[in-house]
C-alpha cells in the first residue's frame, strides 16, 4: 500500500509539503510548508525550508476542521522501494512531477495513530 491519493488520509502526514487552499478562517489561507506535528484537531505547518533564514519561520498551527489542504506527493515519497533516505528531506514546491492532492481537513479528524485503522488492508476481516 504505497502512498497514493487514495491512501493519503490514512497515511503519515508528517513531513509532507502542504498548502492551505481554503479555510473558514481567511487568515489561514495560503499557509504552506512541511507538516511537522499532527494532533487530533490540528496540523503544525513549518513554512521554512530547513536551513533557510527567511522572515516567516514560525510554525503555524492550523485546525483540520473547516480547512482544505493540498498535499504535494512527490514520486520519491510515493515509491516505497527507494524512499528510506530521501523521503524526509524538506520538499520545496519545485518539482513538476509532483502530484497535488486536495483533502478536506474533516477527513483527517482523528488521533494520528488511529487514522490508519479505520479501514485496514487486511483481507480476512
Amino acid at each position: 500500500m504505497a502512498l497514493t491519493p487514495e491512501t493519503l488520509p490514512r497515511h503519515e502526514l508528517n513531513g509532507h509539503w502542504v498548502t492551505v487552499v481554503d479555510a473558514t478562517n481567511p487568515d489561514l489561507v495560503g499557509i504552506a510548508g512541511r507538516v511537522v506535528v499532527e494532533t487530533t484537531n490540528t496540523l503544525h505547518v513549518d513554512p521554512a525550508p530547513a536551513g533557510s533564514a527567511e522572515g516567516d519561520t514560525r510554525v503555524r498551527q492550523v485546525p483540520k476542521r473547516g480547512t482544505t489542504f493540498e498535499f504535494r506527493l512527490t514520486d520519491e515519497t510515493a515509491d516505497p522501494a527507494k524512499g528510506s533516505g530521501t523521503a524526509s528531506e524538506p520538499d520545496h514546491p519545485t518539482g513538476e512531477d509532483a502530484a497535488h492532492v486536495t483533502v478536506d481537513g474533516a477527513r483527517l479528524l482523528s488521533r494520528p495513530a488511529l487514522r490508519t485503522e479505520t479501514t485496514g488492508d487486511s483481507k480476512w476481516r
Binding site: A2, H11, E12, N14, G15, P80, G83, G85, S88, T116
Partner: peptide, 9 residues
C-alpha cells in the same frame, strides 16, 4: 510504511 517514515523523520 508510516513507522518507516516516522523513523526517517
Amino acid at each position: 510504511e508510516r513507522i518507516e517514515r516516522l523513523g526517517d523523520l
